[in-house]
Design a protein around this nucleic acid. Structure first.
Lengths: 140, 140
DNA sequence: GTGATTGCAAAGGTTTTGCAGTAAC
DNA sequence: GTTACTGCAAAACCTTTGCAATCAC
């Protein structure tokens, strides 16, 4: 259960944005759940334990802010529900086609395509490998 | 501008589902647009040119059916709008962080992680590499 | 004190669903 | 003739936005 580390706070403080109890609660909630690539809804429920009055709109606004600050990133999904994860690159995923959960895993091999795309004028910020299938829990 | 090929129709006819003008129009529309990984809305607009009375709900139901039949797949996205593409594996994407467009590209190197995940009880159906960044059109 | 931030509620956009009518087989 | 399918409109989601009140600085 990770705490709000000085690293994240420092990264935030560098900006001129205010560090409100709500934003602290959202960041803390995200860090607690980051292993499971939480939805905004899950972060909202966890954040309310730290700051009971926080509203959903504030959760979305805080997450959006953290994305802009590069602290977190949106994870690619197949249904319309956004998921968030730590901004570690490269990140590698397994997305379950049944329950929608996202699992992260380590990979020895680095993605190596950059050169081909860059040649065509694409600016690559981050790279992922994604596997789709059924997770152990969903193989009936 | 690809036609509705016998390959796709055969794949569909194998099921006991009816081949209605609406479904034919949706499939034709998707095939015309498949290069650009169209949204349901884009498919809807194109489908209406072939079958002017078709409704949005039918487009969604048809696309869902084609996904179940394995003819097409949903492409991973960062915002809540679904995109669809041909069921070719592996597929490799560049997702633009600004405009949300998805570009497909060829890759020499195959993703090779299957063994590690399979060992942990994950059943892999398909694999992708995804790059995020800014496409040529969005680099101001 | 001042301006950024909040919470609420309402609006927005995308996708799904209920149902009576219709058409493919 | 049956049964699956359609179109419409309404509902269900998820996310964003307007605004007066509030709080961090």
């Amino acid at each position: 259960m990770p705490a709000v580390t000085s690293l994240h706070l420092e990264k935030f403080q560098e900006s001129e944005r205010r560090l409100t109890p709500q934003r602290r609660a959202v960041l803390k909630a995200f860090l607690e759940l980051s292993q499971e690539h939480p939805t905004a809804e899950a972060i909202y429920r966890a954040a309310r334990r730290h700051c009971p009055t926080v509203g959903m709109a504030t959760v979305y606004r805080s997450l959006e802010l953290f994305v802009q600050k590069g602290i977190i990133v949106k994870a690619p999904t197949l249904n319309g529900t956004a998921r968030y994860e730590m901004n570690k690159i490269p990140h590698n995923h397994f997305v379950c086609l049944k329950c929608g959960r996202t699992y992260e895993f380590l990979i020895k091999q680095e993605p190596v395509v950059d050169r081909d795309i860059k040649k065509d004028g694409f600016e690559v910020i981050s790279a992922s490998m994604i596997f789709f299938g059924y997770c152990p829990a969903c193989q009936e």
